[in-house]
Design a protein around this nucleic acid. Structure first.
Lengths: 345, 345
DNA sequence: CTGGTAAGCGCAAAAATTTGCACAACTGTT
DNA sequence: AACAGTTGTGCAAATTTTTGCGCTTACCAG
């Protein structure tokens, strides 16, 4: 794709296209807009544009525990992030030097040594259990970005998901449907979970719910079996039914367990109870009814992290550690419906 | 700056430079790295690279109350943000269509109408007092980015500063100097201030401080006069001196007032008491002793917001609202010093 | 040690892009 | 209406960038 072809498509001379694309002022704004539009549509990218930005990043070190997980595993969130990162790197011909530890636990010393010794252009880290490792990596003078970063006071950049925003999306979806009494099913997790709970509490309070904090049920884990058993137990403690018309589960796996438990108790979803999940997993889409769920833009995390490494390389000492929280979206399916309809049914 | 000059500087032929920069595989990685480095150093940018990305954003709407404030005003933070935004737009020839309200309060209806009616490529908003306006703007289907955004559950993108990170920087600086007893002087603000307090509390606790929450003094405002008067009053309530060896003020203006008060009480900075400010204002640099202060990358906020608008334009419906928190740095000056030295003195 | 092979680079031809100049169309002035 | 000034475009020359080809060097197997 070159200027000549764009010129043909636009019905103008090559000079005009050149002027439009190279910022020459001797051209009308209207013509420039038209030509740029055509150039975009035809996917015109200067060869050098790709090359230079690629050349900026030729290789990265990836420190992760999850590198070799199989697609279907319970850690499919990590898998999706790393898979899309690998794809992006392959497309842009960026070499990945992996430092992967299988036993789901990183040896901080070995990881640090690997990061220091490597001659790559930057380090991506998918491991947040060891704040000391983060601090040490920050002193290497080499760009480091944490994938799905948690701690906002860390000295290294992170690209993750806006958990409180995500949770507020689900909560507002339910309150928009008319639900005022909601139950949040969470688990005893760390930072991520706490942010989601915060988002729920704030959005629920804004929608007029009285005491959202006390409407949180914290399980001991997020496996479907645990959720089912503990939700059974929760139901057993209730004397007069669930004090809610909608349940927001902070993971699809929990939603699966909860819906099994609800089915056993003869509570129908969505007629008696709306349910919203979190993760938008394949399982969520195949349930019956299919689960309304929060979708995280996991595919954008890798590319955005690469962008941060590039920026750090370009700005040099002027680059300060940043924190990027990507927004989420809601996949509305059959498990949630307006309160009014439920009452009628 | 063209390939020939780069070739001369690198001592190779033009062909080699061309291959290095255009991603031709028929070149060694080492040579490519060297040439890219020289090209970068000499500021080589393909003319079209600029042009095309410029063409992506031709005009923006800017909604703000602070647009016309003079440089020296108390709102110099807003001024610096908007000034660098204007510069960046001028450089890239992006037209700004301003919607500015002088009385420091926006008429939401007029602002919304202006945003809807305009045919610009995106909207930048420097006003967060009206969550409803944010929600309404989010429905326009046009990219909107909030400058210095606060609410993480909002449906629109925001580019701001990592306040809790910033506060943790100052706190860790003091604890690195050996200070274990710190006093945080804050004020009764909203979200921004709360995040800074959180950052202080977490970093202070990590450094071994016992009950950081109770070491916060909240003033009723952030003017130097208020700070001075209220800190005078605070000192008067104490029977046995300040229970701290370092004071972290969440704004330079507060630090100015506090240092005046300390001077009156015969407490010398930094020998008896280290002081850290926040904002890195001109005043901070000219004080005696010059004030150690947190520097926010205000100049990066405008450009980053423009990048977000571009990204939104490019991704179309695939763009989800994001939240970017830029990192801060610490300007160490004379007002803070190691605890040991202070003890000796 | 020798021949084979492939990688890395320069030369010069080829291709792509930019720019000086001319001219047409439009604007406002006398 | 004639005129001067301004803007926007095409043509062709000038410049810049890419690429085909061949040379040199390094490495390897026999």
């Amino acid at each position: 794709m070159n200027l000549k072809q764009i010129a043909n498509a636009a019905g103008v001379s090559v000079s005009t296209v050149s002027r439009a694309l190279s910022g020459n002022p001797r051209i009308s704004a209207e013509m420039r807009r038209r030509i740029v539009e055509i150039a975009r549509a035809q996917g015109y990218v200067d060869r050098r544009l790709n090359a230079i930005s690629q050349a900026g990043l030729q290789s990265i070190t990836l420190i992760s525990t999850h590198g070799m997980l199989e697609p279907g595993g319970s850690n499919f969130v990590s898998w999706r992030i790393l898979e899309s990162l690998r794809n992006e790197c392959a497309r842009r011909e960026i070499a990945i030097e992996p430092v992967i530890f299988e036993e789901n636990r990183i040896d901080p010393r070995r990881a640090f040594e690997a990061a220091r010794a490597s001659s790559t252009d930057g380090i991506l880290l998918h491991y947040d259990e060891d704040p000391e490792l983060l601090e040490k990596l920050a002193t290497l003078g080499k760009p480091v970005v944490l994938l799905m970063g948690l701690d906002p006071t860390s000295r290294i950049s992170s690209v993750g998901v806006g958990n409180s925003y995500a949770a507020s999306l689900g909560t507002r979806h339910l309150s928009d449907l008319g639900h005022r009494d909601m139950l949040l099913v969470s688990w005893k997790g760390r930072y991520t979970i706490r942010r989601r709970e915060t988002g729920f509490v704030e959005a629920a309070r804004e929608s007029g719910m009285r005491d959202p904090e006390s409407a949180i049920l914290r399980l001991s884990g997020y496996e479907p079996e645990i959720a089912e058993a503990e939700f059974d137990a929760y139901l057993a403690t209730l004397t007069s039914g669930i004090p809610a018309t909608a349940i927001f589960c902070l993971s699809d796996n929990i939603a699966i367990g909860v819906m099994r438990s609800l089915a056993k108790a003869g509570i129908s979803v969505p007629d008696d109870m709306s349910v919203v999940g979190f993760d938008d997993s394949i399982a969520a889409q195949m349930m019956s009814p299919p689960l309304t769920s929060i979708r995280q833009p996991l595919e954008q995390i890798g590319p955005m992290a690469l962008y941060e490494l590039e920026l750090a390389n370009r700005l040099g000492a002027g680059y300060l550690p940043r924190r990027v929280e990507l927004g989420c979206s809601l996949s509305v399916r059959g498990s949630s419906q307006p309160l009014a309809r439920a009452r009628k049914g």
